[in-house]
Design a protein around this nucleic acid. Structure first.
Lengths: 195, 195
DNA sequence: GGGAGCATGTAACGGGTTACATGATTGG
DNA sequence: CCAATCATGTAACCCGTTACATGCTCCC
């Protein structure tokens, strides 16, 4: 009723997007699902924020909720997207301005400041990063395998495939950075830098 | 004097990092430099925040400032890193926990929700993204060319090279996504989805 | 004269996080 | 019995953004 009719922030759309597959889900379910899919390409919001976004979406009329009693007496609140919600997110997907991807790459930042670091230590940082992205590539591969098995999930499967490739190329980029770093260290040693 | 001795946030380190090359710079200079280098791999903070971080860094004793009168009577405040600041950021580069890179990829999110979109429109979104990253790759290439020309800037040059490769592989990933999208659209058309 | 760039901030807001509170159920 | 998981939130905090204020100079 108040003037609280404003567009959700990106995270709100992401949450509504999870519901746009038609299933009735709890905040807890949404958090888990975000952790296992969104996080590859769009980070996973804290659960407290998922609940906050659900509240906002409900005020906007984009979702409805009902409290469901389970077998075990525990209660959960289940959310379902409304027709208005489907319209809104369809509009968003197709016509909202596409923000440029946000990248905050702490490893690149550290390498940029490589003049401050011991070469071996800097190398370790990059190697650690490489290990991480290899792990992520594997997880994305597993996620796309399970998505491919489900009918109607072609797009999630497509994007997890994309994610897998993304992390594989992050791995290759890390390898090239390591090679560059080594080259640079050799050159500096010969020239007698940092005596 | 109060208990306001806390570690800066990532952006603070980034700003201090810009100063770690030893030059004496104004907030305005820092903003411009961030726009032309940091933004490729670590986004560029708003100028208001740069000033805020400079204030914090000064309170921490990591930078000092002096007001410099210029030829034209205009004043500017110039900042210089201190020995304590150099120590602190060196420590940060080498020993702080490396946060996983943050990726918020709006295009991937929209593709993930492809079931909501008109295939042609979704394709346009990806193509627009592809154009953007091609542009960025070019800008990164230019930036690394100028960094390579400066002695002592080997690490920035290395990272802008990395950035260039990064955006080139984003381009390739976009192409593969387009191919996947087309394949999917063909399959759906044959099967008569979305009547 | 006027707009663009230089230069430095302040104020208000909001998005998002961490930490915490609560309580029930399941399984070792 | 105790830890883990399920499940839902509140409170405090802070990072970062946008919008705005101010004023100067350079150049068309």
């Amino acid at each position: 009723m108040g003037p609280e009719a404003k567009e959700p922030p990106p995270t709100g759309w992401a949450v509504l997007g999870l519901l746009s597959f038609g299933r009735e889900l709890s905040g807890y379910d949404l958090k888990k699902w975000a952790d296992s899919s969104l996080r590859f390409f769009y980070w996973s919001p804290a659960s407290s924020q998922i609940y906050a976004e659900l509240g906002r979406l409900e005020r906007l009329g984009y979702v409805t909720s009902r409290v469901a009693a389970q077998d075990d007496l525990r209660n959960k609140r289940l959310f379902r997207i409304t027709a208005a919600g489907t319209n809104a997110i369809t509009e968003w997907v197709q016509h909202s301005a596409v923000e440029p991807p946000v990248l905050k790459h702490g490893v690149a930042l550290r390498a940029w400041l490589g003049h401050l670091a011991d070469p071996a230590r800097l190398r370790d940082v990059v190697v650690e990063h490489r290990d991480n992205v290899v792990l992520l590539a594997g997880e994305a591969a597993a996620a796309s395998a399970s998505a491919e098995a489900i009918d109607g999930w072609e797009f999630p499967a497509l994007v997890t495939r994309w994610s897998q490739r993304y992390y594989e190329s992050e791995r290759d980029l890390a390898d090239e950075m390591l090679a560059d770093l080594d080259r640079l260290a050799r050159k500096r040693r010969h020239r007698g830098h940092r005596a």
